[in-house]
Design a protein around this nucleic acid. Structure first.
Lengths: 113, 113
DNA sequence: AAGGGTAACTTGCTATGCAAGGTACAGTAG
DNA sequence: CTACTGTACCTTGCATAGCAAGTTACCCTT
């Protein structure tokens, strides 16, 4: 049981939230999403992202459009569907609730907001 | 891809943190831990808790002491070791960092602390 | 034609949460 | 003294999902 392992475990839980959130502002293709999350110090790798995007897609939360690139292969730009947008809202709510629960557990005596 | 599923996923990441935190205040036996987390609206079940406690133990983060019960079988009271205490501190730090990262992702323009 | 860079995707492994089932002890009712 | 009930601990098998590593394919440059 290593710290890195546990930290990774914590990250997993918010992956969907972060990815949906990342493309909610503007459509992105996979590599952009990776870089975006990396810049926020949330490590994600290809082998994780692609299957997850596929899952999100088959759940109807995201869709995509192909676009030619100036140099290199075409890119698959992901965009949030209406359904995905609602899902993201709920997910954000859940995340806030979870945060509150953990706070209550770890600081039971504090009444500060 | 259901919301409940994803919410469960988020919960998983903080299980260790919550359990260590739960016994950090006072020694508890499994059923008490379950009830404690449940009261904070963090659902955990036996089949999850026991293997996790076993892992924490073999990692040297917790130890336990048997104690007779007034009625019923003896109880295994778990206590945090020195090592577990340090681990809990690091985990808490990691959790706060994660929270910050998610916040930056989901509210990039806000400068409020 | 060959090589390099970018992008999308797949395969196999492993960790782990969880439902369901199992064992054991103690007190109580019959 | 046997059977039942309640409490507590623990195990087994399944499904999910992240991740490392490998694959395919496109395009541009040399």
């Amino acid at each position: 049981m290593k710290l890195d392992n546990t930290k990774a475990q914590m990250r997993k839980g918010v992956l969907e939230l972060c990815i949906l959130s990342s493309i909610s502002k503007e459509r992105k293709y996979a590599t952009e999403i990776l870089n975006h999350l990396k810049s926020a110090e949330l490590i994600v790798v290809e082998g994780t992202l692609y299957p997850l995007l596929a899952r999100l897609r088959s759940a109807g939360l995201v869709s995509y459009e192909w676009e030619e690139s100036i140099s290199g292969p075409p890119r698959k730009y992901y965009i949030l569907t209406k359904k995905g947008s609602l899902f993201l809202e709920e997910l954000t709510r859940s995340w806030n609730e979870l945060h509150k629960s953990v706070k209550n557990l770890t600081h039971p005596k504090s009444n500060k907001s």
